[in-house]
Design a binder for these strands. Structure first.
Lengths: 350, 350
DNA sequence: TAAATAATTGAAACCGATTTCATATATTTG
DNA sequence: CAAATATATGAAATCGGTTTCAATTATTTA
């Protein structure tokens, strides 16, 4: 447990001032090249490491980015985080992470903790429950950029990063219709969240555009968990007539629903065609393989972090109300294929 | 962008000294109860927030815990992290996370970054490639506790948190033998890592204890990815005779292997019984459902963090060479069941 | 009631880097 | 060669809490 070396130690050693040492270590142009060399050598030789707290205290910035996710143990979010970590790491930023566990109360607490930790920027994917964005105002009024991704909300000073959920849902539903489905159920999450509200819209518009009726009773709102998928299946099995298509807002829920339906003797896709969302690994494991929407999760993480960095280091001018869309695509697999020919049919574009 | 409130502002406002304000906010016993009340009210009313950098600078600690994982986008690690975040959050610690992407070089770089960020403690699950622990010596010699979990290594000053991999593998292999398997393949990862080395041992000992021969050619070393599972299946299909059992060191790889085998016309478990490891969600999706080892991942995260906190706040005395074992269990599903009766048979315990 | 002890409070140093402003030396220009 | 400019360095203030040591006031004890 040796003593920590400071710039004062280096200064004394080389008979210079701490000022010059500090400048040299930060590659300041006003320091002689040779002096820099000497200082840098002494620093490594003496085992110096910069004290970020002294530096942060003085510079009033922390080199730290906060992240609030609904859950850490979800394939989607892990993948997003992997993308964020990659960029943060490359750029020399620290990422501090917390989860809201889908409650607004924890999201608030986490936001406050991040605020007190004085993060230089904040990345957020909203919880199911979140009703308003008041807990982010402290950041915004201080000029700390806040970026929402995936589960976003409209705020004039915040950038959002999303896929076109409406279009993705429209394509998925249209695909089911092309496969001959006329009675399609949609299983989705809390409509407070854009992702679910938009997918519901896309589902609805696709029905309307294909002259199919929209019924409230065909929309099942759930927690989108494995358990919820099973329950949704029970609910569907009680429907009369049985639907001939299901569009689910996430893969885990879709898969668990399929499992329950199969157990009840329903044939997928013959009796009911199913489409999921996200393209998680399980979508390639369930039989039949699940048609789903490919979500560029890792890319979304990378983009979110890059955009945040731009805003953090930017000249202060915010790109107001800006929304960035990433491309998603329908991946057609067996779970939705009821006619061989149809794959060649051109998809209807919104 | 209003000005930041400091304890000096509060002190001036209430005509007190910064000393007293600081003490009051930290609930120091030597401050009068009423004074505390006044200060705390003024603080909230004025919108004060503590400057962690000033505090850290003076206190020489950071309230931050570093975490280095091989990959963020793995069900196992996300679940561990979820557990860690939960405890860290409750205890008021920040978690900064980075991934080694299975290379020693990145692991080193991340360790250095963590060291410079002056984390108060470090949690590590080693990369495939890691050859030695030199990059953690800086922590250890400074008295910063380092804890390894899952993929651990022996170090006299570090605690490790693991499950009994040898026993788990022994049980899994024994189960296959009880099901009538006599020619069992083991697919596992880099033997530099304890988890894989120990599982290999458990596999080997189970064979020996049941008077079955052990052959090197029945052990396939791979990267344990989805792709690797497919390749392993090809290798297995070329074996003559075909094995009648496979024990795979992770579920993803097992599932992808099963998919490839099924495609080649092999019947699971009739022709080949399969067991995975981890109890990821996909193990309940593949058909037949995968027999696997339940890994208490979230619990491992919680325990790791709690043990770290004890060491960080402890009296400095380290529990040397301490290893903590968590309980795991074999979850028997269809992928390994070849005889109905056998489930009732008592498992052989090592 | 005087002396001893406990309860509160504050002044000032400190943590370690950054930055402003000033200064000394070196180089260039007229 | 004097004046102007460029180059290189340093002194000291600063960021905002924490902590040591001292001082003051209140309370208890003899």
């Amino acid at each position: 447990m040796e003593k920590e070396i400071t710039i004062y130690d280096i200064a004394r050693e080389l008979d210079l001032s701490p000022t010059t040492v500090s400048r040299a270590l930060n590659d300041h142009p006003a320091v002689n090249h040779k002096t820099k060399q000497r200082i840098s050598e002494a620093a490594t030789q003496m085992g110096y490491r910069s004290n970020m707290f002294a530096s942060n205290l003085r510079k009033q910035r922390t080199n730290t980015i906060g992240l609030i996710v609904p859950r850490l143990d979800s394939p989607f979010h892990s993948s997003v985080i992997a993308g964020m970590e990659k960029v943060a790491n490359e750029e020399g930023y620290n990422l501090i992470i917390s989860q809201s566990l889908e409650t607004m109360q924890k999201e608030k607490a986490n936001a406050n903790a991040m605020f007190n930790s004085r993060v230089d920027g904040l990345l957020v994917s909203l919880s199911f429950e979140t009703e308003n964005l008041d807990h982010f105002e402290s950041f915004i009024s201080k000029g700390i950029p806040v970026i929402f991704y995936d589960r976003v909300a409209d705020h004039k000073d915040c950038t959002s990063i999303v896929i076109d959920n409406l279009q993705a849902a429209y394509k998925a539903t249209s695909h089911l219709i092309e496969q001959g489905c006329t009675n399609i159920v949609h299983i989705t999450g809390n409509l407070k969240r854009n992702v679910y509200a938009d997918r519901l819209k896309g589902y609805k518009y696709a029905l309307v555009d294909h002259d199919l009726p929209f019924t409230d009773s065909n929309v099942i709102i759930s927690q989108m968990t494995e358990e919820a998928g099973k329950e949704a299946a029970q609910q569907i099995l009680r429907m009369d007539p049985l639907p001939d298509g299901i569009f689910v807002s996430n893969d885990l829920c879709a898969v668990s629903c399929i499992k329950a339906l199969k157990k009840a003797g329903v044939s997928i896709p013959k009796d009911i065609a199913v489409i999921g969302f996200n393209n998680d690994a399980i979508s390639r494991v369930i039989e039949p393989n699940l048609t789903t929407v490919n979500y560029p999760s890792q890319e979304m993480g990378e983009v979110a972090l890059k955009v945040l960095l731009v805003q953090m280091n930017g000249t202060g001018e915010r790109i107001p109300g800006n929304t960035i869309h990433l491309r998603s695509e329908l991946i057609i697999r067996e779970s939705s294929l009821r006619s061989k020919a149809s794959t060649k049919k051109k998809a209807v574009i919104l």
